[in-house]
Amino acid sequence: MSFRIPCPQCGERSAYEFRFGGEVLTRPQAGADDDAWYHYSFVRRNEMGIQTEWWYHRFGCRQWLQAVRDTRANRVIRAYFPDGKEQTDLGTGES
């Protein structure tokens, strides 16, 4: 099976329409200690299994979305916009 991502705006597309943006991380608060910044800057979970990631639909709606993916088979279980709103049917004509 080829690697496809269901964009909440545009529907299911080839992963090659998207730019990978890495694992979803929580940015440390200002003033956090060095250890927190070390983890945020360098350490990655690099899950062999299911992880949540950023993807940018550059050859589509040009929006950043998050996807839950199994990295063993490149199967996307869920994709959504980060504010959590379902935006499958905006119909604004703007894309």
């Binding site: 080829s2 992963a15 090659y16 990978f20 990631e53 990295t71």
Partner: peptide, 13 residues
């Protein structure tokens, strides 16, 4: 490949 993965399958692109 431009994304993290543990899949050892080749791709057409």
């Amino acid at each position: 490949d431009p994304y993290q993965s543990y899949s050892m399958k080749g791709t057409l692109p």
